[in-house]
Structure formats: C-alpha cells, structure tokens
Design a protein around this nucleic acid. Structure first.
Lengths: 197, 197, 197, 197
DNA sequence: CCCTAAACGAGACGGTACGTCTCGTCTTTAT
DNA sequence: ATAAAGACGAGACGTACCGTCTCGTTTAGGG
C-alpha cells in the first residue's frame, strides 16, 4: 500500500567516494582550488550526484568532517587530571598539525567554509567544535576533581577562548610566534581557572 | 630632457575610488561575491588598473582595511584602568558590530581573505590585529598600575586569547550563545591576570 | 508448455497516456524543449516505460502522429474533381494551420524529427506523407476523369512538389509571403498537369 | 573627446576560426552532435567568445553559411536558356550533394537550424534560398527569351516549388526514390511554365 | 492459491552540453 | 606611460536532460 522509499536508493558507495575524494583534494589543493567537477571526476561520479545531495562546496566539505572521514580526533584535548599538562600537550599537538602541509590548508579550508556558509558552520560546530568543547569540559572536570580548578568555571567560556585561539592561529602566518606564546597562554588560562590558595 | 617620470601619473583618485568601491561592495555582497570587475565598474576604473597595483582580490581587501577606509577602531579595546569593565565593553561592542548586516559579512570576508592569502593575512595582522593587540596591552598596563593585574602577564598571550575568541565568534551562527558566555569569559580572563590575594 | 507471454502485460492505458502527453507537450513547448522526463511525469508513468517501448524522443513523436493522436487529416487534400479548387483550398488550409501557435511548432518539430532520426522519418513518411500523397493522387485522378489533367502525369512527382513546398513553408518566417504566392503556385501546377488544348 | 570604439576590438581572426571550426565539425558530426565547447576548442577560442557574438548554436551555423564559409554555390541552378536541361542538371547535382556523407548531414543541420531558430531561418533565407531563387529566376528569364517559357510565370512561385522539393528531399531516407522521380518533376514543371502551343 | 516473471512508478545514477560568471591578460584609443 | 574600455582564452559554476540502473509494487499467466 504505502511506500516510504521508492525509486533507486541513494548509493552509499557514491556518497563515500565523494567524501573521500573531497578529503583527498582538500589535502592536495586546499579549499579554494577545490572544484566540484574534480571531486566528481575523482569519485567516479556525475556532477549532479553531488548537487543532488549537497547545496554547495562548503556543505560537502562540512560533511566530510561531519562524517568522520576527516579525522580530527588528534585535535581533541586529553583529560588526565593535570590540566596544565593537558593544555600544553594540546597546544603543541594542534600547532604541529596546523604546520603540516596537508592538514593546515585543510583546516583553513574548513574555517573558510564555516565563514562562508552558515550551514557548513553548523556542521563543523557539531562535529569539530562540539567534541573539542566536551573534551575541554572533561579535562576541566578532571582538574576540578584533582583540586586544581574551581567548580564555578564555565567550561563553555573556557572552550571559547581555547578554540578561539586555535582558529586565530590558522590566520597567522608566523607559526613560531604562536608556539612561542603557548606557554604564556597556558599560564593565563591556568590562573584563570585555578582556585584561590 | 628625459624622464624620471614620463607619461600619465598614477591616479591617486583612482586608487581611492577603488578602495572605496571595494569597501562598499564588501559591505553589500560579502567577500566571495565580490568581483574585481564590479569593483572596477563602481570605481569608474579599468580592470587593469586594479591588477596593475594589487596582485589579488584579497590584497585589495587587505589594503582597504590597511588604508583606514574600513574603520575598525570601534573594535579596539579601551584602557580605562578597570580591566574588567574594558573587557565587558569591548566584548559587547564587538559582538554588536559582528551582528550588523554590513560589518559582520565584511569581517567574515576579511577573515576569509586572511585564511586564503598569506599576504592579505600579513596586512590584516598589521592593520587590524596589531592595533587591537596594542590596545589590549595598554588596558592591561593600566590594570597593572591599578593593582588589578600581575606584572608578569604576557600581553601577547592575552591578546591571542581575546582576538582568538573574537575571530571564532565570526564562525558561530548562534550570536546569542556568544553574548551569553561573555560574562564567563571575562571571569576567566580576569582571574587569569589578577594578582593572588 | 512455454509462454508466449507471461508476466504483466503492457499497459495500453500507459501507452495512450504517453502519446497523449507527448501530443500536449509538443503543442505547448515544441519539439526541442520536449523532455522525455516531462512526458513521463505528465503521463503518470515511469521514464523507463517510455524507453522500454520507444528508442528515442523522435520515435515517440513519430508514433504520436502514426497513432492518429495528432490528427493530420486537415492537411490532406480534397478530391472534388476540380483540381484547381482542391489545390487552392489545401494551400489555404495548410498555411492556416502552420500559422497556428500550436500546430505550427508541432509540425516544425515533426520535420526536425524527420531530419534528425531516419526511423522517425520513415514513420512520418508512412503516416503523414503517404496519406497526403494518396490524396493528391486521388485528386489528380478525379481531375483526369474530369478531363482537366493529362493521364501521363506522375502523381508522385506532383506530390513531391506540393509536399515539398509545404515543408519548405515551415522554414519560412514570413507567413504572408507563402500565402501571397499560393495563387501562382496553383497556376504553375495546374498548367503542369493540364492537357494541351 | 568622444569614443566611437574604445577597448580591444573584436578579433576578426577569432571570428573566422570559429566559423571555420563550425563548418568542419558540421561536416564531421552533424548539427545535433555539434557542441559549442567543441567549436571553441577547435577554434582555439574561449566559449564565451562565441556566446558574446552569437545567441545560439543555430545562429553560428547560420552565419557559417551567410559568411560564405560553407559554399552552397554548387546548389545554384544554371541559366543556359534550355530550362529543362538546367533543371535536370540541377536536380542531379543537388541530389548528388545531398547523398554525400558530409554535405548531406550539413544541409539537414541547416534545415534543422532554420526550423528551430527563426533568426537562423532568416540568415539562411538571405544566403542560401535567395541566391537559389535568383538563379531560378534567371534560368526562367533565359527560357522566356528562348521562347520556351511564358512571360507571366511567377519565378518566386516556381522557386518555392523547386526549393521545396529540395528541402523535402532532405527528409527522405530513400535517396533513389527522389532521383527516380526527378524526370517526372521536370516534366510537370516544364509543362507548368511553357507557352501554349 | 500460490509462484514466477514481466511490466510498472519512482527516482538515483554516470554523463554531456548548456549558457553564465569570473579570472587575469591583452589590445585598442584617449589623456 | 598610464588610464578606461572592453574583448580575449580559460575554466568552474549550477542546470537540464540524456539513457541506464535499481528499488518496491502490481498484475497477469502456469502449476
């Protein structure tokens, strides 16, 4: 009697190939030289198959992250209980990744996508920012348990500051300057969250 | 007899018109729908006159800021001595501007330019970030003098955090979330810089 | 023992709906903006059902005529015995139809189909040209009986000339020019077929 | 003070290359497999340069004839004084050309262009039909002088009939049938124009 | 009365060509 | 020499259809 889904079903294989191709090209050429037609060609897919499911380049790129094909877990902070150590490690690791010839341009591309397309922004928010935010929250909670952080610190505000500095670092050409200041950043943040003696 | 400078001199009027047109279009349509040919038309200038003097769209946009045609002074922090108040005011004012129909897209455009073109990034660094950085430094210095901030706080690290959060806020669709957390951000930062009791 | 025909039989209803939809769309939008997918939609039919039974758009259009859904009988010449009168009437009527907003484009579409696809050409030959040819033959025969035409005139050659001029008139923008010359055309043809005094 | 024409002038070389490429491809692949992008590639020209100057494929094809790159003079009737001989020769020659692997499809393409696009139709009218019409007129005039044609025959009506049959022959798959009937066609036409004894 | 098989509606698929847009360059005349 | 004007080669954009390919759903025999 009823349908639910008629017609040929969407090819999951195609979807995966498109996202994989997007990921590869994003690494290779960066966001603005990334052409839909090239994604289609590399994925062995018709251009229309991309336009059928995504409204824009930014949306494809966003889902590329969203779907986990771009693995951003190395960018998630640890929650060891030693908040200062977590922070240090995270800053070091994340700036190392940004310096990479592939991941750097890709992250800049994601940032451009987020700035250009608000739906892409939402996707990245969900898949990239939110996990990072939760990890920061956990690391902070661990610090609270260890007695090295106050209980009334807003994890979200803290996350805004740290994620913010990370995004900002993407716009900075002088990578060393970022690395150089990381220690001082940790200092301020640690003091910002620690209990009064 | 001979030259030094022969021929028609560079039109300063044209340069100004180009930057003005860029500014207006940046407000109107944002960065990615900003076309060189449209800038030329609105400036009453040949397209080649733009290419003769700037290497890219991003460079024109960068100089637009650099030259002061785009006035970003409202985005500079005050240095009243009351650091918390300065911070509060700055956060409020800057987020208000970002919410604007014109300045928001323009700032996002500048961010895209910085992420896309490293020379544009440098220009923006010089003209936009650096003044903001210096203002933060001054506000912090005032706080130090007032005894509400430690002397060993790195103004640059602090600036990284604050500018970072500002840039990050450009990528966030939910404007209210940013405003809501501003108080907590101030809390962390204030604690981060204030002296131990 | 074996089948002959098992499975669901071809839906005659569908066939009719397809031809009807083709006819309607041919009237509305003309041949080149006629899309198979639109025929299918209007007929309430899957696209594959069309491709199952016809090899091409031209073939569907040809069968549209072939099946009598497009009624081309107004374009068939009368055979009253007065050949000149038959001719006059036919020229007038056919040019009137060509001037119509619907039938004109449709006839042009059929002509394009014939020029593009040789199987469509054959179909149109059978269903459109052949009847017209026979009618001309009959009209000529009637004229022979009435003593106003020679017995040795080739009806086929005559048909070539008349049908030719009709097809040619489809390519002419200036409808009036065609109408204006019709009398002279009749003159030549009448003289061409009449007996010597 | 005033202009008249500023800016880079239209490249006559490009125009010629486009028309030449169109001609070649028209011969090679026929009208409907003729792609603008292929014309551009073969002409060493940007696609936009075509669209800048012609509104449609049909228009380019029409100008191809109009400009004389496609030489249709072999399709023009002779005016020897012996009208029957002229006719015979013309029918034979024209049908021979239509049977050609290259010119046949090209002529069918021109016909499609004329049926599809009324401005193309006008172009072809001017460049192809009109000269043919004039040649028929001359041949007829020669026949009148030779006493083998009446003075009151409308050359235009005659041209309609002959050109018509030619166009019609393009739609006929069976080339021999056309050739077979040519003699009878001549008979009718000759009788149609000759004086009463 | 089920079983098998063809035809059905729907609609996604890989493609091709379209006509538009913007890029950065080139070539004119005007200042 | 530099300017405005604007045509140029190049190529990505997003759209429209093409003809093919699954899907789940009828709808008929034949067993």
């Amino acid at each position: 009697m009823s349908s639910g889904s008629r017609g040929r079903p969407r090819s999951e294989e195609g979807r995966a190939a498109i996202l994989a191709a997007t990921h590869e090209l994003l690494m290779d050429v960066g966001y603005d030289r990334l052409a839909i037609v090239d994604i289609a060609a590399r994925a062995g897919v018709g251009k229309q198959t991309i336009y059928r499911w995504w409204p824009s380049k930014a949306a494809v790129v966003a889902e590329c992250v969203l779907s986990g094909i771009v693995d951003l877990t190395p960018l998630v902070i640890r929650a060891s209980g030693d908040f200062a150590a977590d922070l240090h490690e995270w800053l070091e690791e994340s700036h190392r990744l940004v310096s990479t010839r592939q991941i750097g341009p890709m992250l800049r591309g994601l940032a451009v996508a987020a700035l250009t397309d608000s739906s892409a922004a939402r996707g990245l928010q969900d898949q990239f920012t939110e996990p990072l935010r939760r990890a920061i929250e956990e690391s902070l909670a661990a610090a609270v348990r260890a007695g090295t952080a106050r209980t009334d610190v807003s994890a979200d505000a803290l996350a805004d500051l740290l994620i913010g500095r990370f995004v900002y670092s993407l716009t900075v050409d002088d990578v060393d300057a970022i690395a150089r200041l990381s220690g001082d950043v940790v200092d301020i943040v640690i003091r910002g969250v620690m209990p009064r003696d």
